[in-house]
């Protein structure tokens, strides 16, 4: 089985957001970059599938500057069981939106016949939740989004996904695109020897021209960043007598906030 996993590098969620200038712009200089946490579930799922079947090949694909993603590809992907990597590094893709990235990924993925293409459900920087499903459409593949459970059969799969008030059971033939999130598995940590060995695994670096595609135009553009709307002051209720505090809170929610 040939599996592809698409991973993105994102700022750590502890990163401070600084907005500077008259048109608030994002100051990204202090960001600590990590593998998108959801993509770790996709990587782990690919490795588990390969281990279970006892054979297969896992290709990691990322769109990003090679010098910045190198460590992530090695430590978080190749050292935990992926076999090779494709890095699409093209300066013209800076600021590309989801659909542009999906087009580049689709072009990279078309170069081989993958049975499964795994994504994270969303990237924690743009919080878009789009790229995986868009790429499925561009590849003409079915997708199952946000799977919580996966069972592989010969040339087919059954996945479960949570919906409001229940679970959908989805059957699909392969090739298929799956988007992965928490609850699916427990991502493993790389061991030191495996990190050393990962340095030997092949990493192919190319740009859009190398993929034989034009740099796709973005259809969305961030005009400005703004701070989140301020929340009002917190009304602290005297907690000296906890039961009285609880009654006062219930009263305030009922009479002042009129929520209950």
């Amino acid at each position: 089985m040939k599996i592809a996993v698409c991973v993105k590098q994102v700022p750590d969620s502890e990163s401070r957001i600084n907005l500077s200038g008259p048109v608030p712009e994002l100051d990204t200089s202090s960001f600590t970059m990590i593998i998108n946490p959801y993509d770790q579930y996709a990587v782990e799922e690919a490795v588990k599938i390969k281990e279970k079947l006892g054979d297969g090949e896992i290709t990691v694909v990322t769109v990003g500057a090679e010098a910045r993603v190198r460590e992530m590809i090695k430590k978080d992907c190749l050292a935990v069981g992926c076999d090779k990597a494709v890095v699409v590094d093209d300066a013209a893709l800076a600021g590309a939106d989801s659909f542009a990235v999906a087009q580049v990924l689709a072009a990279a993925l078309k170069r081989e016949q993958f049975d499964l293409v795994l994504f994270g459900i969303k990237a924690i920087d743009d919080d878009a939740s789009q790229v995986g499903i868009m790429t499925a459409e561009l590849l003409g593949m079915p997708h199952v989004g946000y799977i919580g459970d996966l069972e592989l059969k010969d040339g087919a799969l059954t996945a479960k996904r949570e919906i409001e008030g229940g679970v959908e059971v989805v059957d699909s033939p392969t090739p298929c695109v799956l988007t992965c999130g928490k609850g699916l598995n427990e991502p493993r940590l790389p061991s030191l020897p495996n990190i050393m060995k990962a340095g030997m695994k092949p990493v192919e670096v190319l740009d859009c021209a190398g993929l034989g595609v034009e740099v796709p135009a973005s259809l969305t553009e961030v005009k400005q960043f703004a701070p989140p709307p301020p929340r009002g002051e917190c009304t602290m209720i005297d907690a000296e007598d906890p039961a009285a505090a609880a009654r006062e809170l219930a009263r305030a929610l009922h009479e002042d906030a009129k929520i209950i």
């Binding site: 700022p11 919080d127 961030v222 703004a226």
Partner: peptide
């Protein structure tokens, strides 16, 4: 829309 886990908002124009 909120981005970066709601730490900031982005105003997005579409084409």
């Amino acid at each position: 829309r909120p981005v970066f886990a709601g730490k900031c908002y982005a105003d997005v124009a579409t084409r």
